[in-house]
Design a protein around this nucleic acid. Structure first.
Lengths: 203, 203
DNA sequence: TGCAAACTTAACCATATAGTTAAATTTGAC
DNA sequence: GTCAAATTTAACTATATGGTTAAGTTTGCA
């Protein structure tokens, strides 16, 4: 078999959008072919089955997104700078890929087992960051907080607004998509401020 | 037609679990019948179609969960007490219904339009709470924060761990379900502490 | 005991969809 | 211009699934 890179990429992009919007069961091979501007026969010529396509896509999502988290966590700056950098770059990542959090979330629900394996295969690891937190606690820089709690807080504050975008827009902001974007823009700095104040020791 | 309340409820419970686990497209009527301990013919005798069943269930989810948020928001206590009460009762709600956040999240992704309508039909409203926040800012009790940002923070911190349970358990805690439960147990008080410290004005 | 409602059985229909196939056509490199 | 690879066409298969039907069985109550 011989493949055209452009076609192959168009298929992957089309499939990504389809799976993001409808989940695995809701996605249709015909719809993916249509989005890619090709026909079903060629789609199957490039990618054997729906399942294979899906696995490739979700694997890519994790290969891109999980390391992006972990790499910032592992930078050798002080805790507060790490938090500032992480929240900004993580939120920016999802401004550019707003459907990914929902996609991953859906996958979490439907195949938690498969997900866990994928995570472990990326070699993702939060030890360095946990140690940095513990050290900051010992040095009296921040309040006594479980590292796990702090990490969950950070990720929750960055990710959840994207996962729940319609609820945030309609119920909380009661505005339009523009208002949502503005809220997110502010969060790039506000989240870090909020977190740091929430843990910083008061002398 | 005449219905048995017990059977009707068993169907609803079975369908709820099925939809929670697999989403609308992934759910199977046969599987719902099996879970309810009945056959497909009877299932359709009680509930005309898959779509109807789903709508009933998602409507119930919203009728139960959205007011629960809003009612605490509207209590006439001071801001800090409201936050403490809300986070505790909201997290407890999801300890008892751990799959609901994922279910709602999935629905957000697949039918954002339908969701928005449902929210509006519950009469849910965050004005009272927003005003309480604004008042607290004016009184110099808390830092100058957009009410919308604070509400998003509160809900993110309560809900997200449930939505991302496997990731939290495997990647962040690197432990078991028991460890997750313990983390959540601590969050019932820790989240409020964290939020309040994050906004409270330092004199 | 009799009767009606609740429930089962099992076969059936219609449709959607993943995946296949083979022949025809287009395209681009040599 | 030739040839092989890329792509299309269009018909097809197999299967899963939502939903229906009709006849029979169980159950509880009057």
């Amino acid at each position: 078999m011989n493949y055209n890179k452009d076609t192959s990429n168009r298929i992957l992009e089309a499939a990504t959008r389809e799976f993001e919007e409808k989940g695995y069961s809701g996605a249709r091979m015909q719809s993916i072919a249509d989005r890619a501007g090709i026909n079903k026969a060629l789609l199957h010529y490039y990618y054997k089955s729906k399942d294979m396509l899906f696995q490739i896509i979700i694997q890519k999502a994790f290969e891109v997104f999980i390391p992006r988290i972990v790499s910032v966590f592992e930078e050798e700056t002080d805790l507060f700078t790490t938090i500032e950098k992480f929240t900004r770059s993580y939120i920016e990542l999802y401004v550019q890929n707003p459907r990914v959090p929902g996609f991953i979330t859906q996958e979490i629900n439907n195949h938690p087992d498969r997900l866990v394996q994928l995570i472990q295969s990326t070699g993702a690891n939060t030890e360095t960051f946990k140690n940095k937190i513990k050290k900051s606690v010992k040095e009296g820089l921040i309040d006594d907080i479980e590292p796990e709690q702090l990490i969950v807080n950070i990720i929750s504050l960055c990710l959840f607004p994207f996962v729940a975008k319609p609820i945030v827009t309609e119920l909380i902001i009661q505005g339009t998509e523009k208002d949502f974007d503005k809220l997110i823009e502010n969060r790039k700095t506000e989240v870090a401020k909020f977190i740091i104040k929430g843990i910083k020791k008061i002398n």
